[in-house]
Nucleic acid binder design. Sequence first.
RNA 1: GGCGGCGUACCCAAGUGGCUAAGGGAGAGGUCUGCAAAACCUCGAUGCAGCGGUUCGAAUCCGCUCGCCGCCUCCA
Length: 488
Amino acid sequence: MKIFNTLSGRKETFVPLAEGRIGMYVCGVTVYDVCHIGHARSAVVFDVVRRYLRYKGFDVEFVKNFTDIDDKIINRARAEGASWDAVAGKYTEKYYADMHRLGVEDADVEPRATEHIKEIIELVAGLIERGHAYSIDGDVYFSVPSFPEYGKLSGRKLDEMLAGARVEVDPRKKNPMDFALWKSSKEGEPAWQSPWGPGRPGWHIECSAMSMKHLGRTLDIHAGGADLIFPHHENEIAQSEAYNSKPFVRYWMHNGFITVNKEKMSKSLGNFFTIQEILDIFDPEAVRLFLLQTHYRSPIEFSNEPLEEATQTLVRYYQGLERLDDFLFLSLPEGKKENCPPGFEDGILGGTPSGFKARFMQAMDDDFNTALAIGHVFELVKEMNRFLDQAPTGKKAKEFLLRAKEGLFEAAGVLNVFNRTPAEWQRALLKIKKIGLEVAGIERLIGERREARARKDFLRADEIRSELEQKGIALEDKKDSTAWRVKL
RNA sequence: GGCGGCGUACCCAAGUGGCUAAGGGAGAGGUCUGCAAAACCUCGAUGCAGCGGUUCGAAUCCGCUCGCCGCCUCCA
């Protein structure tokens, strides 16, 4: 299995520190506001990475933190007239609500910065002891020149960074690049007691302290959005490696951005779409598919159109699945003569190396190429349809298709897309398209129409059809039944 | 200014040295059907921003040009 490692800038063969076990840490969110689709991307992408590693048989310890104390939370609390911890609590809840709807699994450990003040203080004190940090008036700074390898993740050199510095430098720092490990608190701000006086942790130190506590000194995988590479992750490396004298992370993974009009979606530009407002119009599965149809390191241009296309794509998938289910459970009476169309065994439907499962794993093994993996899903769907077009009958054909379906379900479990039943999908569409009809009501009308058709009252039958059509439901007459679809 | 990425069919997108350049959406043709719709099948780039080079062979490697974007500041 290969993973693109930001540290080396290339794909590397993945070998965990301890055989069969993986410690993985993902930078979560600062809970000062609701999440936008960019946060969703990071969460969904690394959710799939985790699921795939588990699928491969690794014992994965997955840690994702919440930054629950920070300047932005304090400012937000002021703006909302609430306490800082009420703000953090509120947006933590909203985070969970969004992520659960998107099918993102909770982490094994979900540490909060404020629950690790003791570990953070130990770490800061240790860095001072080792000569990598210094305190001034209650603040503590990391001394960047004390760590010669600084810049190795983001690929920049110290002097270059100084030349491009765009931020006002605190004159008390020994070096302009030094960053805060501990910030003294002003009057009225949340504070914890420390050897340097009351204060709160700097942003970067919490991840070092928490990852070390929950996963040990060296992590297998550390992941987050590409905007965290500098300075956040660079600083984490400096702190952790200066303290431990050991490599901090073996594989760094970073996801690409969501853009709007080709520009990075961000709070400051105001061009962001919240998860909530997107899920108000689109099904979560369509959102997830949309995010996974592009490789995780490439940018994704956001707009409604691709989400509508993703919805249409899911229609194709669930149509195929329904057809398969119909075949497997309805139109395959026992005792019918055997007819298993030849020529499919060696293709994607078969269990050979060119079969679906092998291709799926090959795609995922190559730096989690979900876009290619999803492509294989639809190759399989197409081939399945072609197979069914041959009107197969009998036990052999059934077993053949059951195996194909099994492979599909394994992939669905990893992606957490394609994971519902066709009926569940239709119900979800009914809801998201805000069609004011119940399944029972639709089926009653279909029954009425069936009777009308039986007595050749096509006027009445067409009337019912157009009545449903107006409400957004299309009818499909099959051989001996009528199915309904939500129109898109 | 420094560092990095991207440019593949009408749209999205995979592919980073060698079989027919995946897959989805849209479109066209066909099958099915009381009619219809849907669904399914088929079709679709002699071509991979442009120009040059390396190679038996390049979308894929190298150089230059054009266009777009990111990081260097909080940011998923």
